[in-house]
Design a protein around this nucleic acid. Structure first.
Length: 574
RNA sequence: CGGGAUGUGGCUCAGCAUGGUAGAGCACUGCGUUCGGGACGCAGGGGCCGGAGGUUCGAAUCCUCUCAUCCCGACCA
């Protein structure tokens, strides 16, 4: 590609509406342009990066035995009615009608269509297992698109689906995808981590998220410093510390705590450590009141409540609801004599007696509370949010947290869709069975954005070679001078023959502009051909990642270039 | 959907409290001088001031309503 004839509109300044660095840099580097909220045009450089990712994904999916298909973006509403998601999916599903008033939607995901495709053809266990995938544009009408390609409404996703005859087979399919994902993200030279993810009401540990580690990530990854345990914060579990409980707990006593609402206030007022206080949180769970108890120094994880109760929606109760359910204003709720049908307590609360808790009465708390004796606890379950410094459930070492961007998700679906949509087959004994399904996603466009979040500096993008739209930029500083342009073109041609993607900057621009643009678009290798260098018989080469510059001889250039290229790859651990 | 903010040449923004001929920088065109890390001079082109109503002799500026965009919370690759 010659820069002078390419559509690479670089910008000195980033548009004001670009918040995150990947969005700013992709716009400035001429990779993308915004068309509408959460909807982007992919320009040549942007599309090239996407294609690089897609190709690696494709190779590894094929290698793992999955077959590529391409399903429609527009889907009939009937299929969604059949799976039950037409009602459930909410406004994120963009629906519309055609001229005959038939219902359609833009596909946010393809379980329905894929299940429909397979159920029509697969009749026998002999045809299983089957694994299909596609790389395609999805549309989710996000309430709030943000962060450029990180969370667009329209985005490119690889979604794969497996169909197995039994659980064992499904686990093998799942494992194959898990391994493929590890290979994909490794090949892309990303710093990533597979973590155990919240698998919702389906349960089990059959869901992993692949997180690219970056400061700007929206998710928190909990990982053990001692073993390989890693989990999404939503799901992460910590070891319950053993605390001997006092055998004799004196009777409860009411204390006057005027206007002391928060745990910190109570702790200071009563001179009691926060971890001797019970925090009582009232929740609206599918419209019904639920009280959740955690230690005063802990945070409640609402997802855990939701999963334990198999609920659809969990909200914090409004002050009015709190008043109605506890007969007290916010800040004085407690488990004793609480008239709420479901009271869940965190496992840690089982270890001790003599708590301080709200009295369900304005300006009053109770001391010497024994949950066993004084409260009707429905169940003791893990409810707390893990924090930095907690101990690992597996090995007891300390847990740490990091920020991550979810770029992939593997999920064992079970028979949720096959049952609803009658995707059945006959097994060896002639019995009809539901297929066991799995689904596996990779946010292709998000992978590109997250890579930039992870690899950039103040000059621009620092692409790893496998994802770089252009692996080499050759800056010809004097394109009008045939004595310079001739050799530059010759090198350009020879490097192309090596199979590398190279951009020849043949623009009539000042050198400074070219240097800065080259840094901005992030090609891992930069070559500078100018009159001054050639006079000394050298071509300058810069490793974008390390900033290291070396001079390669113009005579016997290709040989020296290949050696240098290998050193650049080596700096990426490749 | 709640809370906050912003809409002025392609981009970044000023002007708006106190109405009176639309501005700057970057980008673009031409000429000249420059030419190894975002040059300089001169001369140009380009704007329904998001849209619709209203107030006023007069509105980018004041009022009302809309639309769009962005940020913070609940969803997700």
């Amino acid at each position: 590609m010659r820069w002078s004839r390419s559509y690479i509109p670089t910008l000195k300044e980033a548009p004001a509406d670009a918040e995150v660095i990947s969005h700013q840099l992709m716009t400035r580097a001429g990779m993308i342009r915004k068309l509408a909220a959460g909807i982007y045009n992919y320009l040549p450089l942007g599309l090239r990066a996407i294609a690089k990712v897609s190709n690696i994904v494709r190779e590894e999916m094929n290698r793992a035995g999955s077959q590529e298909v391409l399903l429609p973006a527009v889907q009939p509403g009937d299929l969604w009615v059949e799976s039950g998601r037409w009602e459930l999916y909410g406004k994120e599903l963009l629906r519309f009608t055609d001229r005959h008033d038939r219902h359609y939607c833009l596909g946010p995901t393809h379980e329905e269509v894929m299940t429909d495709l397979v159920r029509g053809e697969v009749r026998s266990y002999r045809q299983l297992p089957l694994s299909l995938y596609q790389i395609q544009t999805k549309f989710r009408d996000e309430i709030r698109p943000r962060f450029g390609l990180m969370r667009g409404r329209e985005f490119i996703m690889k979604d794969g689906y497996s169909f197995d005859k039994d659980d064992q087979g499904a686990d093998i399919s799942y494992r194959a995808m898990y391994d493929a994902y590890n290979r994909i993200f490794s090949r892309l030279a990303l710093k990533f981590r597979p973590v155990e993810a919240d698998s919702g009401s389906i349960g089990g540990s059959f869901s992993h998220e692949f997180m690219v580690l970056a400061q700007t990530g929206e998710d928190t990854v909990v990982s053990c410093t001692g073993c390989d345990y890693a989990a999404n914060l939503e799901r992460a579990v910590a070891k319950v510390a053993y605390t001997p409980s006092s055998v004799d707990c004196p009777p409860c006593a009411e204390v006057f705590t005027p206007a002391q609402h928060s745990v910190e206030e109570i702790s200071a007022f009563l001179q009691v450590p926060a971890f001797h206080i019970v925090k009582t949180i009232l929740l609206d769970v599918d419209g019904k009141p639920v009280a959740a108890l955690v230690r005063g120094d802990r945070e409640l994880n609402e997802i855990k409540v939701k999963n334990h109760l198999n609920a659809d929606e969990v909200h914090l109760a409004t002050p009015e609801q709190v008043q109605q359910w506890t007969k007290a204003p916010v800040g004085f709720a407690g488990p004793v004599a609480l008239e709420v049908p479901t009271i869940l307590a965190d496992l840690e609360l089982e270890q001790r007696e003599g708590w301080v808790a709200g009295a369900n009465k304005a300006d009053s708390h109770l001391t010497n509370v024994s949950l066993r004796r004084d409260a009707k606890i429905t169940a003791y379950v893990d409810l707390r949010t893990v924090a930095e410094g907690d101990t690992c459930v597996r090995c007891g070492a300390m847990l740490g947290t990091a920020r991550g961007i979810e770029v992939g998700h593997v999920f064992k679906l079970g028979t949720k869709y096959s049952k609803a949509m009658k995707a059945v087959f006959l097994d060896e004994t002639g019995a009809e069975k539901d297929m066991i399904m799995g689904c596996y996603g990779i946010g292709v466009t998000r992978v590109v954005a997250s890579c930039i979040e992870q690899n950039h500096d103040d000059k621009g993008i620092v692409f790893p070679p496998p994802m770089a739209p252009m692996e080499v930029v050759l800056l010809c500083l004097d394109p009008a001078n045939e004595a310079v342009f001739g050799p530059a073109e010759e090198m350009y041609r020879q490097i192309q023959e090596l199979g590398l993607d190279i951009l020849l900057d043949d623009r009539e621009e000042r050198p400074g502009v070219k240097f800065n643009d080259a840094d901005l678009i992030g090609a891992p290798m930069q070559l500078v051909v100018g009159a001054k260098g050639l006079a000394r018989g050298v071509v300058e080469a810069k490793n974008r990642k390390t900033g290291e510059k070396v001079e390669l001889p113009a005579q016997g250039f290709m040989e020296a270039f290949v050696t240098w290229k290998n050193s650049v790859y080596a700096s990426w651990g490749m």
